[in-house]
Protein backbone atom coordinates (compact mmCIF):
# COMPACT_ATOMS: atom_id res chain seq x y z
CA UNK A 1 0.00 0.00 0.00
CA UNK A 2 1.05 3.54 -0.61
CA UNK A 3 -1.35 5.81 1.22
CA UNK A 4 -1.54 9.49 0.47
CA UNK A 5 -3.70 12.47 -0.35
CA UNK A 6 -4.95 14.13 -3.48
CA UNK A 7 -5.61 17.83 -3.15
CA UNK A 8 -7.87 19.49 -5.66
CA UNK A 9 -6.65 23.05 -6.23
CA UNK A 10 -9.66 23.69 -8.42
CA UNK A 11 -12.13 23.55 -5.57
CA UNK A 12 -10.09 24.41 -2.47
CA UNK A 13 -11.61 27.55 -1.02
CA UNK A 14 -8.84 28.21 1.50
CA UNK A 15 -11.04 27.98 4.58
CA UNK A 16 -8.30 26.34 6.75
CA UNK A 17 -10.85 23.82 8.06
CA UNK A 18 -8.45 20.94 7.23
CA UNK A 19 -5.73 22.55 9.35
CA UNK A 20 -8.13 23.05 12.25
CA UNK A 21 -9.49 19.50 12.04
CA UNK A 22 -5.92 18.22 11.87
CA UNK A 23 -4.94 20.16 14.94
CA UNK A 24 -8.04 19.03 16.80
CA UNK A 25 -7.48 15.35 16.06
CA UNK A 26 -3.72 15.26 16.44
CA UNK A 27 -3.46 17.41 19.57
CA UNK A 28 -4.58 14.29 21.42
CA UNK A 29 -3.26 11.83 18.85
CA UNK A 30 -0.16 9.65 18.73
CA UNK A 31 2.28 12.58 18.37
CA UNK A 32 0.29 15.11 20.43
CA UNK A 33 0.22 17.62 21.86
CA UNK A 34 0.83 20.15 19.12
CA UNK A 35 2.13 22.93 21.29
CA UNK A 36 1.04 26.51 20.78
CA UNK A 37 3.33 29.33 21.83
CA UNK A 38 1.55 32.47 23.05
CA UNK A 39 -1.77 31.46 21.49
CA UNK A 40 -3.52 34.55 22.86
CA UNK A 41 -0.46 36.80 22.89
CA UNK A 42 0.81 39.35 20.43
CA UNK A 43 2.92 36.83 18.53
CA UNK A 44 0.93 33.60 18.28
CA UNK A 45 2.82 30.65 16.84
CA UNK A 46 2.83 26.89 17.17
CA UNK A 47 3.10 23.46 15.65
CA UNK A 48 0.83 22.58 12.74
CA UNK A 49 0.90 19.56 10.45
CA UNK A 50 -1.03 21.28 7.75
CA UNK A 51 -0.63 24.82 6.45
CA UNK A 52 -2.61 26.64 3.81
CA UNK A 53 -1.04 29.35 1.70
CA UNK A 54 -2.62 31.41 -1.06
CA UNK A 55 -1.00 32.34 -4.34
CA UNK A 56 -1.89 34.53 -7.27
CA UNK A 57 -1.19 32.70 -10.50
CA UNK A 58 -0.92 34.84 -13.63
CA UNK A 59 -1.06 38.59 -13.76
CA UNK A 60 -4.11 40.79 -13.36
CA UNK A 61 -6.56 40.72 -15.08
CA UNK A 62 -5.68 37.22 -16.29
CA UNK A 63 -5.02 35.82 -12.86
CA UNK A 64 -6.46 33.37 -10.39
CA UNK A 65 -6.14 32.91 -6.66
CA UNK A 66 -5.04 29.41 -5.71
CA UNK A 67 -5.36 28.18 -2.15
CA UNK A 68 -2.61 25.72 -1.46
CA UNK A 69 -2.85 23.32 1.50
CA UNK A 70 0.39 21.52 2.28
CA UNK A 71 1.17 18.70 4.67
CA UNK A 72 3.63 15.82 4.62
CA UNK A 73 3.83 14.30 1.12
CA UNK A 74 4.87 10.87 2.47
CA UNK A 75 7.56 10.71 -0.22
CA UNK A 76 8.63 7.42 -1.75
CA UNK A 77 12.29 8.51 -1.49
CA UNK A 78 11.97 10.36 1.80
CA UNK A 79 15.26 12.15 2.44
CA UNK A 80 14.06 13.08 5.93
CA UNK A 81 14.22 9.39 6.82
CA UNK A 82 17.67 8.73 5.34
CA UNK A 83 19.28 11.74 7.04
CA UNK A 84 17.82 10.97 10.49
CA UNK A 85 20.77 9.94 12.70
CA UNK A 86 18.72 8.33 15.48
CA UNK A 87 16.31 6.21 13.48
CA UNK A 88 13.39 8.17 14.96
CA UNK A 89 12.10 8.98 11.47
CA UNK A 90 10.87 5.99 9.57
CA UNK A 91 8.69 5.07 6.63
CA UNK A 92 6.32 2.22 7.24
CA UNK A 93 6.79 -0.62 4.78
CA UNK A 94 3.16 -1.68 4.91
CA UNK A 95 1.48 1.60 3.96
CA UNK A 96 4.25 4.11 3.17
CA UNK A 97 3.37 6.52 5.99
CA UNK A 98 6.37 8.54 7.21
CA UNK A 99 6.37 8.88 11.00
CA UNK A 100 8.57 10.16 13.81
CA UNK A 101 9.09 8.01 16.89
CA UNK A 102 8.73 10.62 19.62
CA UNK A 103 10.69 8.45 22.07
CA UNK A 104 13.77 8.35 19.85
CA UNK A 105 13.90 11.86 18.36
CA UNK A 106 16.68 14.08 19.70
CA UNK A 107 15.50 17.29 18.03
CA UNK A 108 18.50 17.98 15.78
CA UNK A 109 16.30 19.53 13.02
CA UNK A 110 18.27 17.71 10.32
CA UNK A 111 15.14 16.07 8.84
CA UNK A 112 13.43 19.45 8.54
CA UNK A 113 16.45 20.69 6.58
CA UNK A 114 16.11 17.74 4.21
CA UNK A 115 12.38 18.29 3.65
CA UNK A 116 11.63 20.65 0.74
CA UNK A 117 7.94 20.90 1.60
CA UNK A 118 8.21 22.32 5.12
CA UNK A 119 6.29 19.34 6.46
CA UNK A 120 8.26 18.97 9.68
CA UNK A 121 8.09 21.32 12.61
CA UNK A 122 9.99 21.17 15.87
CA UNK A 123 7.88 21.23 19.03
CA UNK A 124 9.89 23.37 21.44
CA UNK A 125 7.96 22.03 24.44
CA UNK A 126 8.89 18.38 23.88
CA UNK A 127 12.07 19.02 21.88
CA UNK A 128 11.00 16.58 19.21
CA UNK A 129 10.11 16.82 15.55
CA UNK A 130 6.45 16.54 14.65
CA UNK A 131 4.73 15.93 11.38
CA UNK A 132 1.58 14.72 9.64
CA UNK A 133 0.80 11.12 10.57
CA UNK A 134 -1.86 10.75 7.88
CA UNK A 135 -3.99 10.08 10.96
CA UNK A 136 -2.41 6.65 11.30
CA UNK A 137 -4.21 6.36 14.64
CA UNK A 138 -7.57 6.83 12.95
CA UNK A 139 -7.57 5.22 9.50
CA UNK A 140 -7.26 1.69 10.95
CA UNK A 141 -9.55 2.23 13.95
CA UNK A 142 -12.01 -0.68 13.98
CA UNK A 143 -14.29 1.22 16.34
CA UNK A 144 -15.04 3.85 13.72
CA UNK A 145 -17.53 3.41 10.91
CA UNK A 146 -15.77 2.45 7.65
CA UNK A 147 -16.47 5.81 6.02
CA UNK A 148 -14.91 7.59 9.02
CA UNK A 149 -11.60 5.74 8.69
CA UNK A 150 -9.98 8.62 6.84
CA UNK A 151 -7.66 11.45 7.90
CA UNK A 152 -9.40 14.24 9.79
CA UNK A 153 -8.54 16.82 7.12
CA UNK A 154 -10.22 14.76 4.39
CA UNK A 155 -13.37 14.16 6.42
CA UNK A 156 -13.82 17.79 7.33
CA UNK A 157 -13.15 19.47 3.99
CA UNK A 158 -16.41 21.23 3.08
CA UNK A 159 -15.43 21.63 -0.56
CA UNK A 160 -14.38 17.97 -0.97
CA UNK A 161 -11.01 19.20 -2.14
CA UNK A 162 -9.15 16.37 -0.42
CA UNK A 163 -9.12 12.67 -1.20
CA UNK A 164 -7.40 9.85 0.63
CA UNK A 165 -6.46 6.49 -0.78
CA UNK A 166 -3.96 3.93 -1.99
CA UNK A 167 -1.75 5.01 -4.88
CA UNK A 168 -0.39 1.49 -5.39
CA UNK A 169 -3.79 0.36 -6.60
CA UNK A 170 -4.19 1.72 -10.16
CA UNK A 171 -7.98 1.48 -9.90
CA UNK A 172 -8.36 3.28 -6.58
CA UNK A 173 -10.29 6.56 -6.62
CA UNK A 174 -7.13 8.59 -6.00
CA UNK A 175 -5.15 6.89 -8.77
CA UNK A 176 -7.99 7.31 -11.23
CA UNK A 177 -8.53 10.97 -10.34
CA UNK A 178 -4.82 11.74 -10.67
CA UNK A 179 -4.81 10.03 -14.07
CA UNK A 180 -7.93 11.77 -15.33
CA UNK A 181 -7.22 15.23 -14.01
CA UNK A 182 -3.43 15.28 -14.69
CA UNK A 183 -2.51 15.33 -11.02
CA UNK A 184 1.08 16.33 -10.38
CA UNK A 185 3.76 16.25 -7.69
CA UNK A 186 5.46 19.31 -6.20
CA UNK A 187 9.13 20.01 -6.97
CA UNK A 188 9.61 16.80 -8.94
CA UNK A 189 13.14 17.94 -9.87
CA UNK A 190 14.38 17.08 -6.37
CA UNK A 191 13.49 13.44 -6.99
CA UNK A 192 11.79 12.68 -3.68
CA UNK A 193 8.79 11.19 -5.49
CA UNK A 194 6.11 12.56 -3.15
CA UNK A 195 2.99 10.42 -2.77
CA UNK A 196 0.56 13.32 -2.41
CA UNK A 197 -0.65 14.73 -5.70
CA UNK A 198 -2.23 18.06 -6.60
CA UNK A 199 -4.97 18.51 -9.16
CA UNK A 200 -4.60 21.65 -11.27
CA UNK A 201 -7.54 24.05 -11.66
CA UNK A 202 -9.83 23.11 -14.51
CA UNK A 203 -10.33 25.41 -17.43
CA UNK A 204 -13.49 27.43 -16.93
CA UNK A 205 -15.26 29.75 -19.31
CA UNK A 206 -14.26 33.32 -18.47
CA UNK A 207 -17.06 35.40 -17.03
CA UNK A 208 -17.55 38.33 -19.43
CA UNK A 209 -17.14 41.75 -17.91
CA UNK A 210 -16.97 43.98 -21.01
CA UNK A 211 -19.19 44.47 -24.12
CA UNK A 212 -22.10 42.75 -22.52
CA UNK A 213 -24.60 44.04 -25.09
CA UNK A 214 -27.80 45.89 -24.30
CA UNK A 215 -28.91 45.60 -20.67
CA UNK A 216 -32.06 43.62 -20.13
CA UNK A 217 -35.01 44.64 -17.92
CA UNK A 218 -33.35 43.20 -14.79
CA UNK A 219 -30.18 45.18 -15.35
CA UNK A 220 -32.15 48.37 -16.05
CA UNK A 221 -34.14 47.89 -12.86
CA UNK A 222 -30.95 47.32 -10.86
CA UNK A 223 -29.32 50.45 -12.27
CA UNK A 224 -32.49 52.43 -11.51
CA UNK A 225 -32.67 51.15 -7.92
CA UNK A 226 -29.00 51.89 -7.41
CA UNK A 227 -29.59 55.43 -8.59
CA UNK A 228 -32.58 55.99 -6.35
CA UNK A 229 -31.41 54.35 -3.15
CA UNK A 230 -28.59 56.25 -1.49
CA UNK A 231 -26.15 53.95 0.37
Amino acid sequence: MRLGLVIDLDVCVGCHACAIACKQWNASGMTGALTDYEPYGAEPSGVWFNRIRSYEVGEYPVSKTINFPMSCMHCEDAACVTVCPTGASYKRAEDGIVLVDQDKCMGCNFCSWACPYGARELDRATGTMKKCTLCADRIYDQNLAVEDRQPACVLTCPAHARMFGDFDDPESAVSRTVRERSGYQLMPELGYNPTNHYLPPRKAKPIPIENLGKPGFKEKLKTFVNKVVKR
Binding site: S45, R53, E121, L186, Y198
Partner: peptide
Amino acid sequence: STINTATGFNRAKVKLLDQGHTHGTFL
Protein backbone atom coordinates in the same frame (compact mmCIF):
# COMPACT_ATOMS: atom_id res chain seq x y z
CA SER B 1 13.89 25.20 -8.02
CA THR B 2 11.55 28.14 -8.46
CA ILE B 3 8.18 29.13 -7.08
CA ASN B 4 6.80 27.67 -10.32
CA THR B 5 8.19 24.16 -9.80
CA ALA B 6 7.27 24.40 -6.12
CA THR B 7 3.60 25.06 -6.85
CA GLY B 8 3.41 23.28 -10.20
CA PHE B 9 2.23 26.36 -12.07
CA ASN B 10 4.95 26.42 -14.67
CA ARG B 11 3.46 28.68 -17.29
CA ALA B 12 2.50 31.75 -15.32
CA LYS B 13 3.90 34.18 -12.82
CA VAL B 14 3.18 33.00 -9.28
CA LYS B 15 3.01 35.41 -6.38
CA LEU B 16 2.38 34.74 -2.70
CA LEU B 17 -0.80 36.39 -1.43
CA ASP B 18 -1.07 34.96 2.06
CA GLN B 19 1.31 32.85 4.14
CA GLY B 20 -1.51 31.45 6.23
CA HIS B 21 -0.05 32.53 9.56
CA THR B 22 -0.01 35.85 11.38
CA HIS B 23 3.32 35.54 13.17
CA GLY B 24 6.40 33.44 12.38
CA THR B 25 6.44 29.65 12.37
CA PHE B 26 9.19 27.11 12.91
CA LEU B 27 9.76 27.24 9.15
